[in-house]
Design a protein around this nucleic acid. Structure first.
Lengths: 337, 337
DNA sequence: GACGAAATTGAAATCGATTTCAACCCCAGT
DNA sequence: ACTGGGGTTGAAATCGATTTCAATTTCGTC
């Protein structure tokens, strides 16, 4: 059913119908009500592509998906979806298969030039992230989930990674631990850098020095948690506590500890950051895992909201949110033996 | 840059340029080459919304995302993306917040009537799934990931769940197990039903009867694996083997076994279905987990391909694929003590 | 050199909405 | 009775491409 037809059935002009449906003020209340109810009854809905062509709005927010199916991705998206479903805005997934930066940049260009999206959200930025410069120069609104240290202006939402790990580490030191290891996220990402900073600062504050031999960077996975924890714990001067990058990593760490005949929360303390996944709960691990916590889903919802605001014209330099994280102590952290 | 302008710069008509870029045969090779290279140089790309309006193609495939961030989702999507990136087709995520069927149906209607997508993919169908009937009546091409038993025709790709669990169970019986428990997926989904069938058939074949008290349905999560395994193992007549619905479930099962002072692969055998996630590998669990395996990512890629074929007009009743699963025996299965 | 077929190119209509600008109605104020 | 203004409505232009149909060029053949 097209506007033409529909308008004819109502005995009105397309103009008036269009105005009635888009809430313009100059159409009389009586007409608006009639149009609305008839649209519902006859199932008329504007062709989204015509609307987009005419208005220039794409009605979609782009999200770049890294090739390696990020474990965080589904939760974040689900959060976004929650906000967007009432905003008549779609989520457009654009795959990044590229292994080099240039390909990735090309993907952004394509997105912008073909007018597919009104804005994009990018994840896991690096301190100097070329994407930020590119998006700025392309003039496409964008929100960074995470932060960058580039001089180029950008809207962002991030969690306070530095403070999270700092409190985590302080807690371990205060329990009496002196040799603490950290299994960090991917090298080069801003969040990994911030976490490392938190780790160092906590040590310094207490008059200690973080041992570089006890710090590694890797992806968040069960496997990497296991491997690094084993490697740490088999050393002569093994750490008595381990800070893990994610609950998935912690899973591997637990396994490594057990595989060496030790017990988490007794021989070795473990603490991790928890992005709150419905299928893996820190509280249910054995022993229950102490964590810093910040919901990935909530971040998705808020990022969607902020992105809508950017599209609506909110100033980029107003949009900066740093979320604090909760510290939740459970059974996996205790004084060293 | 618009077609008008671009064509003028080339000294050609918009018609010819459009044809050159879309690969029509009637444009001379020389012109085509010139147009292509200039388009690259000047960065001309057709406005996607104009193209869509004119051609009536949406250039996107819709995927419905259930509210609960499915753990499988990211991998499947990532697989889809891999196929679609060269097809100039987007993936459109539509959130389903609805708790009732009617809302969900409404979401599909909206998708179709506003011409947002050329096809949709739906997941985890039930034996009589009303979505299938609706999509048929709306005339929108769709692919079911999984299968339904409805009389309504539908294209589908599924893994052979029945056979997977059947072989799994046969293996356990052949090892000597007589009391085998199964932690199945969500009740009412076709895949859960098929798995249950496989479980029963394996028993029957060997002259045994599956014990209904040892079969439960629940979501795939660490927590549910733990809870149900505990409950099974604490009974008077405890099972000696457990079939788990996913590696995540198996994780919880392992934990439950250990929490009771028992050992996986000795006191209790465990086997699961593995959808192959990069962050949780059956092989790396301790002890390594025996599984049936089928890559979720590969399914995504193939589903994208099949959906493109449906859009191109391939007959719906030709599109049925049943994927066999591999059975991989590792350390978690052994004869009963 | 002329003719017709084949190969190229272009003008204009079209997709389905939004929005500008003009027209109309109705009534208050003079 | 006439004017002006507010409140409603509509005709037509427009967004930026694709595609139909007609026009033009090129080329082989007689």
């Amino acid at each position: 059913m097209k506007l033409r037809e529909f308008a004819k059935q109502l005995g009105l002009s397309p103009t008036t119908v269009s105005r009635a449906l888009s809430g313009y003020p100059e159409v009389s209340e009586a007409t608006r009500a009639r149009v609305a109810s008839e649209a519902m009854r006859l199932g008329y809905r504007p062709d989204i592509n015509a609307v987009r062509l005419k208005t220039g709005r794409a009605g979609a927010i782009g999200v770049m998906m890294a090739r390696s199916g990020e474990i965080h991705f589904a939760e974040f998206m689900s959060g976004m979806a929650q906000r967007l479903e009432t905003a008549d805005t779609d989520i457009l997934i654009t795959p990044i298969t590229a292994h080099n930066d240039e390909d990735e940049m090309q993907a952004y260009r394509r997105l912008v030039e073909s007018r597919r999206v009104d804005a994009v959200i990018i994840h896991s930025p690096r301190p100097k992230d070329p994407r930020i410069e590119l998006l700025n120069s392309l003039g496409l609104p964008f929100l960074v989930h995470g932060r960058s240290e580039t001089e180029h202006i950008h809207a962002w939402l991030d969690i306070d990674n530095e403070n999270a790990v700092r409190r985590t580490t302080e807690h371990l030191i205060d329990l009496g631990h002196r040799r603490i290891a950290m299994i960090n996220g991917l090298r080069g990402k801003t969040y990994s850098i911030h976490r490392e900073q938190g780790f160092r600062i906590a040590h310094q504050e207490r008059g200690l020095v973080a041992d570089p031999n006890l710090m590694v960077c890797d992806k968040f996975s069960d496997e990497s948690g296991f491997r690094h924890a084993r490697s740490f714990l088999e050393r002569a001067n093994a750490p008595t506590a381990i800070v893990a990058g994610s609950t998935m990593t912690a899973l591997g760490v637990y396994r490594a500890v057990r595989s060496l005949g030790m017990t988490v929360g007794q021989d070795v303390s473990v603490i991790a950051h928890d992005d709150v996944f419905p299928y893996l709960t820190a509280e249910n691990m054995a022993p229950s895992l102490s964590t810093t916590r910040s919901s990935m889903r909530a971040a998705g919802t808020r990022c969607a909201e902020l992105t809508l605001q950017l599209i609506a014209g909110r100033a980029v330099d107003e949009v900066h949110e740093l979320w604090p994280v909760e510290l939740i102590l459970r059974e996996s952290t205790a004084p060293p033996p």
